[in-house]
């Protein structure tokens, strides 16, 4: 076979490959997103459709640190893997983007909305969900840790509006609430921090069934390097405040250095140097 014939053969095979690829693309079913999976099998198994269903409103209710935010972030990350847009209505202004990025959230595709007035939160979420431009809208209705005052509860009419917006827009609407002021009228998942070992999720209210299903998971599923199992592990630092703090941070900078005077010199002829032995003992405890 001559070189020219070989070349023709190669070109032909490339064209054939491309044709094959186009055929495969055309034959493949259109990627249609129906649920957003959290990536945690135990949680996905709780939900009737095997993940957070699109076109519905779901409430995640739990204490201040019970894994609600991480679950929502995982749903957002699942939408981002399909290159869809998401929005986060951040009522208490507490979402920490670096942690979100670590969970796989594409920060460029996440619109963060921080309304100034609390009553605008639900309105903003309804607008975002109804538009249909976002696959997942998270509405954070919790109260910040430091803030005081009564939390307004999501009324039945508002919950109806939220559910309707989600249905019309075809996206998922996640509502984060605290147990003191839960929302009414939507599917509810209750999250609970049990102890240093783990946390649990329970389906409290659901129209599609599965009410009462419960999963218990270790914290390492959400935060792989949290390290709070068995009471945690503390690196025992001896009186860190004395030694570790750089001098320039202390009030009287020159007064105390190594327990001696300025520049570590002896304070005077009459005072004795501190014993070396004491320092060595202290170091032994530290390591």
């Amino acid at each position: 076979m001559s070189a020219a014939e070989q070349r023709v053969g190669a070109v032909g095979s490339v064209v054939e490959q491309l044709r094959e690829k186009i055929r495969a693309l055309q034959a493949a079913p259109r990627r249609y997103l129906a649920v957003l999976r959290t990536g945690m099998e135990a949680v996905d198994a709780l939900l009737p459709s095997g993940g957070f269903p699109l076109g519905q409103a779901v409430e995640l209710c739990g204490e201040a640190a019970s894994g609600r935010t991480s679950l929502a972030l995982r749903a957002v990350a699942a939408a981002h893997r399909e290159e869809r847009l998401c929005a986060w209505v951040d009522g208490p202004r507490e979402l920490y983007p670096p942690a979100a990025a670590a969970l796989g959230v594409d920060l460029e595709r996440l619109l963060i909305v921080r309304p100034k007035a609390p009553e605008q939160r639900v309105w903003a979420a309804v607008q975002l969900a109804r538009s249909g431009a976002f696959a997942c809208v998270v509405l954070d209705l919790t109260r910040g840790v430091g803030s005081t005052g009564r939390m307004s509860r999501v009324a039945l009419a508002e919950a109806r509006k939220l559910a309707d917006a989600a249905e019309r827009g075809g996206g998922l609407l996640l509502v984060l609430t605290s147990p003191e002021s839960p929302a009414d009228g939507v599917m509810r998942l209750r999250t609970e921090a049990r102890d240093g070992e783990g946390w649990s999720v329970e389906v409290v209210r659901s129209r599609q069934g599965g009410t009462g299903a419960r999963a218990e998971l270790p914290w390492s599923v959400l935060y792989p390097e949290l390290g709070l199992e068995d009471g945690g592990r503390v690196l025992d630092v001896v009186e860190a405040a004395e030694d570790a703090t750089p001098d320039f941070l202390r009030e009287q900078a020159g007064a105390l250095r190594n327990g001696c005077g300025i520049l570590g010199q002896r304070p005077g002829r009459d005072a004795s140097m501190p014993s070396l032995r004491e320092g060595l003992d202290a170091a032994g405890v530290a390591h």
Partner: peptide
Amino acid sequence: ADSPLDAGSRNDVVPRVGRERPSRLLAAPA
């Protein structure tokens, strides 16, 4: 490979330090 999510689908390199950071951060330490 030890990523909690399926590592194959994630193309961007996530900073490791973020995995032990809280998802909620107070605007000012309380």
